[in-house]
Design a protein around this nucleic acid. Structure first.
Length: 418
DNA sequence: TCTGGGGTCCTAGGACCC
DNA sequence: TCTGGGGTCCTAGGACCC
C-alpha cells in the first residue's frame, strides 16, 4: 500500500501555529509579490474564494468578512515543512517528499490489522509535535491514495484518515470523483474528456486502453492503470538532481532602467548558482529573460540562451555571462515587470570535459565559492555577496503583510509574555 | 493600481546520417 | 511518369504538478 500525507491548508496552518487567534477565522496567504491567493483556510474557502485568484479581484469579500491576509513567508513554511517531514520519517519506513506540504509513504509489508492505528497515531503525533494538521489517504497506488486523501479531507467522519482497501470502496470512490479531481488530469484533458461524455473517474477506467493511449498518451494510460489499482508510478525515495534551475521574480514596482535590471539578474544568477552547487552540479547553458507586464498593452519580452564554453557553477562567471545576455535583449523605454535566470543542461560536477583555450583559474574559483557557501551557511544567507547584486534593491518583491521568521532567525523569534 | 514561482515529462517535427 | 527506408538527436511547445 501507498499513503499520501498532505498538510491541511498548509501555509495558513503555519501562520496559525504562531498566532492561535487565527483559529476558526477566515485566513488567506498570498503568492510572492502579494499577487494571488495561494492558500485558504476552510472558512475562506466557504466564502467562495478560489485558489489562485488575484487579490484585487476579491478585495470586497476580504474587507466585508475581515479575512486575514498574509504575504508568503517561505522561510517559515520551509522550516515547518521540514519538521513535519522529519516526524513522518520517524514513523514510516520509507517515503518520498513530493512537495512542500505532501509526502508519499511506503507502507508495503505493514500488517493490515495495525495499519490504520499506526496511521492515525502518526497523524496525532504530527499535530502534537508541530502544530500542523494533516490528512492521510492510503490505497494500492499513488493515484488512488490521492483520491483517498481527498475523501479524508472532505468527509468529516473519516477524521483525517481514509484507507481505500476494498473493491467496493474503490468503486464507490471512483464513482464520486470527477475527472477534474484526478491527479494527472489537468484543465485541458478535463475539457477533452467532458466533451466526450466522460465525467467521472469510474467512467474513465472503463474506457479501453488503446483509446486512452491514443488520446491521453502514455501518461494518461499510466493514470488509468493506477486508478484500476495497478501501480504504474513508483515511489521515488531519492530526489533526483534537478535538470534545470530557475530563479525568477516579479518586481515590486516597474523597473525601467538597465542598472536595476542588472542588479536583479545578478541576484537571480547568484541564487541559481548557489542551488547548482548545493546539488554538486554544473550548468552548460544560461538563459536570461525579461518581460513587461503581460496584462498591459505594448508588451515586450525576450530571452537569450548562451551555451557555456566550459560547464560551471561559479557565481562570478555565471553572473558575468548573464549580464552580457541581458545587455543583448534589453530595450530601453519599457517598464519591466519580471526577470529571471535559468541554468540548463545540468551535469554532475565529476569528470568534466575541459576546454583547451580556457583561461579561467577554475580551481581557485571553486575554492573561493566553497568559502562563500560555508560562510553563508554559518552566518546566514547573503552574508557574503557580490556587489553587482545591488545594495538597496528597491525593485524587490512586495511583501506588505509578512509575519516574522519565527523559527529561523534569532532576531525574529517569538516573544511570549505571561 | 493590483495578476506567483519552480519544476517534469511527452510528442511532433525538422535536421541530419547512411 | 517515375523520386527509399530506417534511424538518431534536438528543440519547441504543450501538458501536467504543487
Amino acid at each position: 500500500m501507498f499513503g499520501i500525507a498532505d498538510c491541511n491548508n498548509f501555509y495558513v496552518s503555519c501562520e496559525r501555529v504562531f498566532n492561535p487567534s487565527l483559529e476558526k477565522k477566515p485566513v488567506v496567504v498570498l503568492s510572492n509579490n502579494d499577487g494571488c491567493i495561494v492558500a485558504r483556510s476552510n472558512e475562506a474557502k466557504r466564502l467562495g474564494i478560489s485558489m489562485g485568484t488575484p487579490l484585487f479581484k476579491v478585495r470586497e469579500i476580504v474587507q466585508q468578512h475581515a479575512i486575514a491576509v498574509y504575504s508568503s513567508n517561505y522561510a517559515l513554511y520551509a522550516d515547518m515543512s521540514q519538521r513535519v517531514m522529519s516526524v513522518l520519517a520517524q514513523r514510516i519506513p520509507a517515503m518520498e517528499i513530493y512537495s512542500i506540504d505532501e509526502a508519499f509513504l511506503d507502507l508495503r509489508g505493514f500488517p493490515k490489522d495495525r495499519l490504520e492505528r499506526h496511521i492515525r497515531e502518526t497523524r496525532e503525533i504530527v499535530l502534537q509535535w508541530t502544530g500542523i494538521p494533516i490528512s492521510i489517504g492510503v490505497a494500492s497506488t499513488k493515484t488512488l491514495a490521492k483520491i483517498a486523501n481527498r475523501a479524508a479531507k472532505k468527509k468529516e467522519d473519516y477524521k483525517g484518515v481514509c484507507i481505500l482497501d476494498s473493491e467496493v470502496i474503490r468503486e464507490d470512490c471512483l464513482k464520486h470523483t470527477g475527472v477534474e479531481d484526478i491527479w494527472g488530469i489537468g484543465p485541458r484533458l478535463t475539457r477533452f474528456l467532458k466533451a466526450r461524455g466522460i465525467f467521472t473517474a469510474w467512467q474513465l477506467v472503463n474506457m479501453n486502453d488503446s483509446w486512452i493511449k491514443k488520446n491521453l498518451t502514455v501518461t494518461g494510460l499510466r493514470t488509468v492503470y493506477e486508478l484500476r489499482g495497478v501501480p504504474a508510478i513508483p515511489l521515488k525515495e531519492k530526489t533526483p538532481d534537478k535538470q534545470e534551475i530557475c530563479t525568477s521574480r516579479s518586481f515590486g514596482r516597474p523597473v525601467d532602467n538597465l542598472q536595476e535590471l542588472k542588479e536583479s539578474i545578478a541576484t537571480y544568477a547568484a541564487r541559481s548558482a548557489e542551488k547548482l552547487r548545493q546539488q554538486h552540479s554544473l550548468a552548460n547553458t544560461i538563459l536570461v529573460f525579461i518581460r513587461t507586464d503581460p496584462f498591459k498593452d505594448d508588451v515586450y519580452q525576450n530571452f537569450s540562451i548562451l551555451p557555456l564554453p566550459v560547464p560551471t557553477a561559479c557565481t562570478e562567471e555565471i553572473t558575468e555571462y548573464a549580464l552580457d545576455e541581458l545587455e543583448r535583449i534589453y530595450k530601453p523605454g519599457y517598464r519591466y515587470k519580471k526577470a529571471g535566470v535559468i541554468l540548463g543542461n545540468i551535469i554532475p560536477n565529476t569528470g568534466v570535459q575541459q576546454n583547451l583555450f580556457d583561461t579561467r583559474p577554475r580551481e581557485k574559483n571553486q575554492k573561493r565559492m566553497q568559502v562563500v557557501d560555508f560562510i553563508n551557511l554559518k552566518m546566514g544567507s547573503d552574508t557574503l555577496r557580490f556587489a553587482s547584486q545591488g545594495i538597496k534593491k528597491s525593485w524587490k518583491m512586495k511583501r506588505e503583510n509578512i509575519t516574522p521568521a519565527y523559527t529561523t532567525n534569532w532576531d525574529e523569534i517569538l516573544t511570549v509574555r505571561i
